[in-house]
C-alpha cells in the first residue's frame, strides 16, 4: 500500500463568523488530476490555499507525502518548495522577464547557480511553448502567455503537486485554449494536479477525479463520467444544470 501524496483530513476554516470549510476530507495519489468544482463562495480557493499554507487552517490536518504540514513547527517554505501554485490573476513578478520569473525560485530557494537556473528555465519555458518570449516582460505578454509563464514558474521548482486557482477565469475566451492545452499536457505527463476550474473540457478529458464542493463541504466526488452523467446528490445535479445553462448562454 502506498500512502496518498496529499491527505486532507477533517479540515475546518472560518473567517470571523463565516464558516468557509466545514470538515473537508480529500485524498490524492501521485499522478492524480483532481478538479474542484462548486458555486462561488463554496470554499474552493480557500481549500487550495490551505494546502500550501497561504491560509492558516482552524483545525484538521493537511499531510503531504505522510508529513503533517499544518503542525506549528512545520517549515512552510519547505512545503511550498514541493507545492507549486498557479494563480487566477497570474501574479507574475512584474519587474522580471519571463525567464527571470521562472528562475527566481530555483535561484533563491533551491540555491541553484544562475547559469543552471537559466538553462533549466529555458526548458520550462519551452514546455509551455514560450521559449521565444524568454526576454519579454509580463506587461508585453498576452493573458494566455502570462498564465503559461505562471505555469512554467511553478514547474521550475520541480513540485510534487501543482495547485491551479481558476487558471483560466481571467482570460479572454479565445486565450483559454492555449492554457488548457498546456495543463492537459502536464496531466498526460503524470504531474499531480489539484485544479479549481469550471473549464468542463479540461475536467472531462484530463481529470481523474471531480470533487463537488458546496457550502464548505464535499458533497460528492468521483470520476468525471460518473459525476457529470449520473450525479447522486440533488445539489450536484442542480449545480451542473446551472453550469450548463450558463455555458450555453454565452455566445
Amino acid at each position: 500500500m502506498t500512502r496518498p501524496l496529499l491527505d486532507i483530513d477533517d479540515l475546518y476554516k472560518s473567517y470571523g463568523s463565516e464558516d468557509v470549510l466545514e470538515g473537508v476530507d480529500l485524498e490524492m495519489d501521485r499522478g492524480d488530476v483532481t478538479v474542484l468544482i462548486g458555486p462561488s463562495g463554496s470554499g474552493k480557493s480557500t481549500l487550495l490555499r490551505c494546502v500550501n499554507q497561504l491560509t492558516d487552517i482552524d483545525s484538521g490536518t493537511v499531510a503531504l507525502d505522510g508529513t503533517d504540514v499544518t503542525r506549528p513547527e512545520a517549515d512552510v517554505n519547505e512545503l511550498r518548495k514541493q507545492v507549486g501554485m498557479v494563480f487566477q490573476d497570474f501574479n507574475l513578478f512584474a519587474h522580471l522577464t519571463a525567464l527571470g520569473n521562472v528562475t527566481l525560485g530555483p535561484r533563491k530557494v533551491l540555491g541553484m547557480d544562475a547559469d543552471e537556473a537559466r538553462e533549466r528555465g529555458r526548458e520550462h519555458l519551452e514546455q509551455v511553448g514560450l521559449l521565444d518570449q524568454a526576454d519579454s516582460y509580463p506587461a508585453e505578454l498576452s493573458g494566455g502567455q502570462q498564465q503559461r509563464v505562471g505555469i512554467a514558474r511553478a514547474l521550475a521548482m520541480d513540485p510534487e503537486l501543482l495547485l491551479f486557482d481558476e487558471p483560466t477565469s481571467a482570460l479572454d475566451p479565445e486565450l483559454v485554449g492555449e492554457v488548457v492545452d498546456v495543463m492537459r499536457d502536464l496531466a498526460d505527463r503524470g504531474i499531480t494536479m489539484l485544479v479549481v476550474s469550471h473549464e468542463m473540457g479540461f475536467a472531462r478529458s484530463a481529470a481523474s477525479d471531480i470533487v463537488f464542493l458546496d457550502d464548505g463541504e464535499i458533497v460528492e466526488h468521483g470520476p468525471p463520467e460518473q459525476l457529470f452523467e449520473t450525479p447522486e446528490a440533488d445539489r450536484t445535479r442542480e449545480f451542473l444544470g446551472r453550469l450548463q445553462t450558463e455555458h450555453e448562454g454565452t455566445p
Binding site: 500550501n52 497561504l54 517554505n77 511550498r80 518548495k81 507549486g84 501554485m85 494563480f87 490573476d89 501574479n91 507574475l92 513578478f93 512584474a94 519587474h95 527566481l104 525560485g105 533563491k108 530557494v109 514558474r153 511553478a154 521548482m157
Partner: peptide, 23 residues
C-alpha cells in the same frame, strides 16, 4: 505594489523577507 506579488513570491517558496527583498 499589488499584494498578489508577495503572495506569488511566498508560493514559490521565498520567505516573507526574501519576497519583500526580491519582488
Amino acid at each position: 505594489v499589488d499584494s498578489g506579488q508577495l503572495t506569488a513570491a511566498r508560493a514559490v517558496g521565498l520567505s516573507k523577507l526574501e519576497g519583500i527583498r526580491y519582488v
